[in-house]
Simulated scan of single mutants.
Amino acid sequence: MAALVAFGLSLGLPILLKPVLLRHGVLDIPNERSSHTEAVVRGMGITVAAGVAGGLIVAIVGAGTGEGPLLATVGGASLAAALLGWAEDFRGLGIRVRFLLQLAIGAAATAMLVELTDASWWWVPLGAVAVAGYINVANFMDGVNGISGLHGLAVGGMFAAVGAMYGMPWLVSAALVIAMAFAAFLPWNLRGRNFLGDVGSYLLGGSLAVTGVAAFLSGVGPEMLLGPVSVYLADTATTLLRRIGAGERWYAPHRQHVYQRLTDVGLSHLQSAVLVTACSLLTGICGIVAGGGTLPAKVAALAAGAAVLVLYLKSPRILGRRRQGYATGR
């Protein structure tokens, strides 16, 4: 029921919100980072936030003993991240201010989760960095149509599967709410006429990161949580290091991520998003196998996951060479 509420709200509310955003001129103007060429409506992610909020409220009402506070913490941190993104969409915030507020959200959420799970307080600074970091990762990776909706659906689905394996109904509920809320936005976004905006990408990163931190502090193996997000992490990390090594301003708008370069070698937005999601599913499966298998299975799964990441990172070059070969008749 919670997932259905999230899906329904996220799917239906854009009908009401889009005219409001158009009236207030909340548009995404193409820049050096953009993969689109004309102004489109942004900030539509507020409807996904409403879906997540509504779904989690239903989940909290039906939660078992001790599960409600975990769901409430995930929901509170997710919505705080969304509100921060909303402020960025409407007014703009300095880089330092944004990052400090992201850290504050992560620290507050992790502190609450530590209290609920009796984990070590040493996890608070690490949780703060993890949440702030993934909010930015999700924001950096939200550059082609459908990629964020598919990421939320895929990672949320895998987190739900992990929750079922560990017997954690709260994790199943939270993950399915996130998955369905982002899946419902896909029909609005796939044709490139409506964008999540920072409110949506911050919500995506914040909700998945806080859910992951909560699951980890509750005893879930890290491989199972890192596997589904490793493609996003690898793409962002390698792009950042490459830009720093080249002496570029790493925070300036650009189109050097792997998923963006895939569109430069001929893939459509949807094809690029599907490739990223397929690789995320593969690394996620590898992470789940590694987290629950014997030592030989763990080694094999981690090696397979690493191979998927290498192939993904090299995919623009591989596809570019094939395209060049077809063009020259070789």
Rank of each mutant, 00 (worst) to 15 (best):
L208M: 07
R96H: 14
L21R: 03
G200I: 05
I57Y: 05
P187D: 07
V231N: 02
V308L: 10
I318L: 15
I15Q: 12
G247S: 12
S272E: 08
A278Q: 00
V172A: 03
G92D: 10
A184D: 14
G197S: 03
V20K: 11
L126T: 03
V310W: 15
I105E: 09
G62M: 13
I178E: 08
V276S: 06
G152M: 09
L217F: 04
G133N: 12
G325R: 13
H254F: 07
V177N: 14
V258M: 04
N139T: 03
L93A: 05
V177H: 11
R193S: 08
I57C: 04
A179H: 05
G54V: 06
N145P: 00
Q102S: 12
G197D: 05
V213G: 01
V61H: 11
G149F: 08
A161Y: 07
L83Y: 07
W188Y: 14
G55A: 02
D89E: 14
N139A: 01
G221Q: 14
A297W: 14
R242G: 02
R23D: 04
A108W: 02
G62Y: 14
G291M: 07
L4W: 12
I29E: 13
M165P: 00
G227S: 01
V265W: 12
V265F: 05
V5Q: 00
G75V: 11
G157H: 14
A327S: 11
A297I: 01
D28F: 00
S280P: 00
Q324R: 15
V162A: 00
L295I: 04
M165F: 08
W170F: 14
G287H: 05
P296F: 06
E88V: 10
L21Q: 06
I60W: 04
A237R: 08
R321K: 14
I288N: 01
S148F: 12
G245M: 08
G43R: 05
I95S: 10
V52S: 08
A327C: 06
M168L: 15
L71A: 10
F182C: 04
R261F: 09
R91M: 10
G45Q: 07
N139Y: 04
F182T: 04
A307C: 03
H257T: 14
T263K: 07
A273M: 11
W170E: 15
I57T: 09
A214L: 08
G75L: 13
L186H: 07
V299L: 13
I318P: 10
A300N: 08
G329T: 11
T294I: 11
A183C: 06
V310A: 11
